[in-house]
Simulated scan of single mutants.
Amino acid sequence: YHWALHPWAIYAVVALALALFSYNKGLPLTIRSAFYPILGDRVWGWTGHIIDTLAVFATLFGLATSLGLGAQQANAGLNYVYGIPEGVTTQVILIIGITAIALISVLRGLDGGVKVLSEINMVIALALLLFVVFAAGAASIMTEFFKGIGAYFKEVIPLSNPVGREDTGYMQGWTAFYWAWWISWSPFVGMFIARVSRGRTVREFITCVLIIPSLVCVFWMAVFGGAAINDIIANPETSAVKAQVIDSYNPPLSLFAMLESLPLAAITSTIGIVLVIVFFVTSSDSGSLVIDTITAGGKVDAPV
């Protein structure tokens, strides 16, 4: 529910506003430009500076949240597969390592560093996705996918309505958290989308930004979530997902516990750890480039 239309709708609003005012109106590619119809020339003064500064801090906080969650998940995987101690010390070391790799990557530039890591990230993610699809059973995965789409459209409106809800714990602990997280990511993702959307019509933009990513998210959840659920149903007594994730409530272990039920668990879990790390490196790189653009007044080729 939280990973389909809602985040991409937030990103689409920001990206479309930035793309429209930058490419159609000739304004700088920066967050303040989206406020030009409301504030007029005041966006070039201290009001605009405040807007861009808030966008920079929002991006930093969003990336920091992601980095913290990524470090927890990578640490959980390292502990699960290799017995490396799980705790703050290991997570701090991981954060330092991820930050160092991201720094080297961003210093190498868009083509020499960020693009290479992004392509590696996509290849690893696609390979792991296809492995789980066929190892867990393509037929059952596709069944879960279509069931997930049906359940999503059935529940999306009730779960989006905060009035009269009894599940306040879920709404506050999950929905509100993700809502704030998506908003904090919106300047970063919105600007990144706007940069690659030049020449697209609004219809093409909405299709590519809202519908396709949402379907990809649903499919990703159906594959990994479906494999985990099928394991619990098939092996309720021996399922690692049930014992170590649900019963012990250890969400960072979800991926690795699910992979244990499939062949080549040690190899795929290692690939999963690498994927988590590379994903957050590329996120940090992209965020750095966006912050660079904002603080340089919209220059897309600003120095690092």
Score class of each variant (00 low, 15 high):
Ala71His: 08
Phe279Ala: 09
Val274Phe: 07
Ala265Asn: 12
Ile291His: 04
Ile51Tyr: 13
Leu20Phe: 14
Val278Met: 10
Gly148Trp: 06
Ile84Thr: 04
Thr65Val: 07
Asn121Thr: 05
Gln73Arg: 03
Ile141Ser: 05
Arg165Val: 14
Tyr1Val: 08
Ser197Met: 10
Tyr80Ile: 02
Ile271His: 08
Ala55Thr: 03
Asp111Val: 05
Ile98Phe: 13
Phe177Tyr: 15
Tyr152Ser: 01
Gln91Cys: 02
Thr30Asp: 10
Thr282Tyr: 14
Lys299Glu: 07
Ile124Arg: 13
Ser239Tyr: 10
Ser118Tyr: 01
Leu130Thr: 03
Ala15Cys: 08
Gly87Asn: 07
Ser197Phe: 11
Lys154Arg: 13
Gly40Glu: 06
Ile157Met: 12
Thr175Leu: 09
Pro263Lys: 00
Leu29Thr: 04
Leu63Met: 12
Lys25Tyr: 11
Val218Glu: 12
Met142Ser: 09
Ser22Cys: 14
Glu86Ala: 11
Arg198Val: 14
Leu159Arg: 15
Trp185Gly: 00
Thr89Gln: 10
Ala76Trp: 04
Ile95Trp: 08
Asp231Val: 03
Ile51Val: 15
Ala74Trp: 06
Arg198Lys: 15
Leu54Gln: 07
Ala227Asn: 13
Ile211Tyr: 05
Phe146Glu: 08
Leu94Asp: 02
Ile10Arg: 05
Ser284Lys: 05
Gly272Ser: 10
Thr238Asn: 08
Ala240Gly: 00
Thr30Leu: 12
Met191Trp: 02
Leu210Met: 10
Leu20Arg: 11
Thr30Val: 15
Gly190Trp: 01
Tyr23Glu: 13
Gly97Gln: 08
Gly272Val: 02
Ser254Asn: 08
Pro37Val: 10
Ala19Met: 10
Phe256Gln: 03
Gln244Lys: 15
Asp231Glu: 13
His2Gly: 12
Gly137His: 01
Glu86Pro: 01
Gln72Asp: 12
Gly97Thr: 06
Asp285Arg: 08
Pro263Ala: 00
Ser140Ile: 13
Val281Met: 06
Glu155Asn: 15
Glu237His: 04
Met142Lys: 02
Leu275Ile: 00
Ile84Phe: 13
Met122His: 05
Ala227Asp: 15
Tyr80Gly: 02
Phe61Lys: 05
Asp292Met: 09
Ala234Trp: 04
Lys115Ile: 01
Thr293Met: 12
Pro236Gln: 01
Leu69Arg: 06
Ile211Pro: 02
Leu117Glu: 07
Val13Phe: 11
Ile229Thr: 09
Val281Ala: 07
Leu259Tyr: 04
Val132Tyr: 04
Val281Pro: 00
Asp41Lys: 11
Thr238Ser: 12
Phe205Cys: 08
Ala136Asn: 02
Phe188Met: 13
Phe131Lys: 04
Thr201Glu: 14
Ser269Asn: 06
Leu39Trp: 13
Trp174Ser: 02
Tyr11Gly: 06
Leu117Cys: 07
Ser140Asp: 11
Ser105Pro: 00
Trp182Ile: 00
Glu144Asp: 12
Val278Ile: 15
Thr293Trp: 06
Gly190Lys: 00
Leu5Arg: 10
Gly272His: 04
